[in-house]
C-alpha cells in the first residue's frame, strides 16, 4: 500500500466516502425538528454589529443574507400560496441588516418593498427603507417610482405620490412618469396610473419569477380598468349604476367578464367600484 497507486486508491476511496456520507445525511430527518417555521430563518445580531463583524467583506455578507432570504421565501412559496404572516419579521430584519451592511445593494430594497407592501400591507416600513436607499443612491429613480406607487396606490396620498413620480421622471429622464403624475394630480383614475407604473416595473425587472408575478397583477388591474370604464359608459348611458357585471354584458358594453388571474371574481360594489373577491392575492 506504500506504492503511489495504492495511496491514490486510498485517496479516491476516502473522497467517495465523503460524498457518500454527504449523500446519506442529506435527508429531512437529519434536520432539526420541532422548531417553528419562523425560527427556521437565521438569527441576526444588531445591524451595527453585523457591519463590524463583516470587516472588509460587508458586500459579500449583504449578498449572502439577501440570497438566504430569497431561498427562505422560495421554500415558503412551495408550501403556501401567499407569504405567511410569520415571514414578515425575517424580511424586515434582513432588510435592516443588509441595508446597514451595504446601503447601495439594490436587490434587498426591491424584495422588501415587494413583500412588505403587497403581502403585508406595511407600506410605512417599505417606504422608510426606500428613503434610506435614496439617501445613498439618489440617482436611482426606480426608488422614486416605488415610493410614488406606494403613496398613491396603498396610502392614497395622491399629492405625495405625484411628487415622487415627478422626481422619478426628472431623475430618469423618462417623461412618461411625469405624465402619469399629472394624471394623478387631476385624480383621473388610479387604476390606470397603477397599470402604467406596473408596466414600468415589468420593463425594469429581469428576474423571470418576479416578472411573472407583476404580469399577473397587471392582468388583474387591466381587467378591473376595463370594467371601470364600462361602468362609466353604463352610468352615462342609463343615468344609473349597474347592479352587477351581467348588466354591462347585457347592455352590450362588454363582450365578456374578464378573468381574475388570482382566482377570484370581479364584482361591482354599492358605490359602483369594481372589486374582486381575491383582493389581488392568490385564493386558497
Amino acid at each position: 500500500m506504500k506504492s503511489k497507486g495504492g495511496r491514490l486508491l486510498i485517496v479516491l476511496i476516502l473522497v467517495l466516502l465523503m460524498i457518500g456520507v454527504n449523500y446519506f445525511f442529506d435527508k429531512p430527518q437529519v434536520r432539526l425538528k420541532g422548531r417553528e417555521e419562523a425560527e427556521r430563518f437565521r438569527l441576526y445580531a444588531n445591524p451595527s454589529f453585523e457591519k463590524w463583524s463583516g470587516f472588509e467583506f460587508t458586500f459579500l455578507k449583504a449578498f449572502y443574507y439577501t440570497l438566504g432570504l430569497r431561498v427562505y421565501m422560495g421554500k415558503l412559496s412551495e408550501e403556501y400560496l401567499a407569504p405567511p404572516p410569520f415571514a414578515k419579521d425575517p424580511i424586515v430584519r434582513t432588510a435592516e441588516v443588509v441595508t446597514r451592511l451595504c446601503p447601495y445593494y439594490y436587490d434587498i430594497y426591491y424584495i422588501a418593498n415587494g413583500y412588505l407592501t403587497w403581502d403585508y400591507g406595511d407600506v410605512e416600513t417599505a417606504n422608510r427603507l426606500l428613503e434610506k436607499g435614496l439617501e445613498y443612491t439618489p440617482e436611482r429613480w426606480i426608488y422614486y417610482l416605488y415610493l410614488g406607487f406606494n403613496h398613491f396606490y396603498f396610502l392614497k396620498d395622491y399629492e405625495k405620490g405625484a411628487m415622487y413620480l415627478v422626481e422619478a421622471s426628472e431623475v430618469s429622464g423618462k417623461p412618461q412618469y411625469a405624465h402619469l403624475a399629472s394624471k394623478l394630480l387631476y385624480a383621473s383614475g388610479r387604476t390606470e396610473v397603477a397599470i402604467g407604473i406596473l408596466k414600468g416595473m415589468i420593463e425594469n425587472t429581469r428576474d423571470e419569477g418576479w416578472k411573472r408575478g407583476l404580469e399577473t397583477r397587471l392582468k388583474a388591474l387591466e381587467g378591473i380598468y376595463e370594467l371601470e370604464k364600462a361602468v362609466e359608459v353604463f352610468r352615462e348611458r342609463f343615468g344609473t349604476l349597474p347592479q352587477n357585471l351581467e348588466e354591462l354584458k347585457n347592455a352590450g358594453i362588454i363582450k365578456g367578464i374578464p378573468e381574475d388571474p388570482y382566482g377570484g371574481e370581479f364584482y361591482i360594489d354599492e358605490e359602483g367600484n369594481v372589486r374582486t373577491t381575491s383582493n389581488l392575492t392568490y385564493m386558497d
Binding site: F57, L60, F63, L67, Y106, D207, W210
Partner: peptide, 21 residues
C-alpha cells in the same frame, strides 16, 4: 444565475472580495 439585479456589481464585488481574502 443567483443574481437578481446589477450583475456587474455583484460579480465585481465577489471577485474583489475573493482577491482581498
Amino acid at each position: 444565475s443567483f443574481t437578481m439585479f446589477e450583475v456587474p456589481r455583484v460579480l465585481a464585488g465577489f471577485a474583489l472580495s475573493y482577491t482581498n481574502f
